[in-house]
């Protein structure tokens, strides 16, 4: 299995069996669906509080193409992107850590024909499915509140999934290095600044030029830029760069995960 992993791209090897792990997670969440549903409300509260509440103080902001945009329409796609990030991070860090180290779920799984690659792909796939549910819900709310101004907004769904994929893979990669629960503070230390400073609440132009460059290196910035471009109809080649950047980071994360998991699980 080890040698196979290094030759064939992971998702293609593992896809069919990894589905079984997704099945397990669906079974678990069927009983605690409230937890699943509650995840949808967090970005909604933020949209209402920040988008409309603070928006009433801000008025309008210049959109990506200079058109005046209501503040809520500006913040909403950013909330969609960051909730995709938060959901994926939660699923791929805390959840995976506990299954790995406390519940020993994977130890049992690995006694079956499933291998570490199946586990990695299965968990990332599950995080994506869950994230896309939230994305559909959130986009519907945006449409209902009149915060979408382009039919391209439909593509915000796969875009949110891409953001989820990137962060799920990176999150799992980080988790594979974690030793104690206290190490997870580091994850907050990364995701909170990302959430606050990735062009989520105000345009990139608010930063001095050097800082702008730094912000542009972060994955969430590209997620926000991508989804905002699609929901506000400000299309351009920049969106392709965003998508490519996210995809590349995600694949790097996945490559790390499959190696590390093998080390952690097959001792």
């Amino acid at each position: 299995m080890g040698s196979l992993l290094r030759i064939a791209p992971l998702p293609f090897v593992a896809a069919p069996r990894a589905g079984r792990l997704v099945e397990r997670n669906i079974l678990v969440y069927r009983r605690i669906w409230l937890v699943l549903v509650s995840g949808f409300f967090e970005p909604l509260f933020y949209l209402l509080g920040i988008g409309f509440g603070i928006g009433s103080l801000v008025g309008t902001v210049p959109g990506l193409e200079g058109q005046a945009l209501s503040y809520a329409a500006f913040v909403a796609p950013a909330m969609m992107a960051s909730s995709a990030m938060n959901g994926a991070i939660y699923d791929s860090t805390f959840n995976v850590f506990f299954k790995l180290n406390y519940d020993k779920v994977y130890d049992a799984v690995l006694a079956t024909p499933l291998g570490p690659a199946d586990v990695a792909v299965g968990e990332v796939a599950w995080a994506l499915m869950r994230g896309s549910l939230y994305a559909v819900g959130f986009l519907s709310v945006m449409i209902a509140l009149g915060l979408v101004s382009s039919p391209w907004a439909v593509l915000a769904l796969p875009a949110a999934m891409l953001v989820g994929f990137t962060f799920a893979a990176l999150g799992m990669a980080a988790t594979s290095f974690m030793r104690t629960v206290q190490d997870f503070d580091l994850i907050f230390l990364v995701t909170l600044p990302l959430f606050l400073f990735s062009g989520t609440f105000y345009p990139l132009s608010a930063y001095p030029p050097e800082l702008q460059l730094a912000v542009q290196l972060t994955p969430l910035y590209h997620g926000v830029d991508l989804i905002r471009g699609l929901t506000t109809g400000a299309l351009g080649p920049g969106l392709l760069v965003d998508a490519a950047y996210l995809a590349a980071l995600g694949l790097v994360g996945l490559a790390i995960v499959s190696r590390r998991l093998e080390k952690l699980l097959l001792k």
């Binding site: 603070i54 103080l57 801000v58 309008t60 902001v61 606050l196 400073f197 609440f201 608010a206």
Partner: peptide, 18 residues
């Protein structure tokens, strides 16, 4: 971090806008 992002970044916009 909230103070830096919302207070300074967003605050700058609000103070100019209104």
């Amino acid at each position: 971090l909230f103070l830096a992002a919302m207070g300074l970044g967003l605050g700058g916009m609000i103070d100019r806008a209104a």
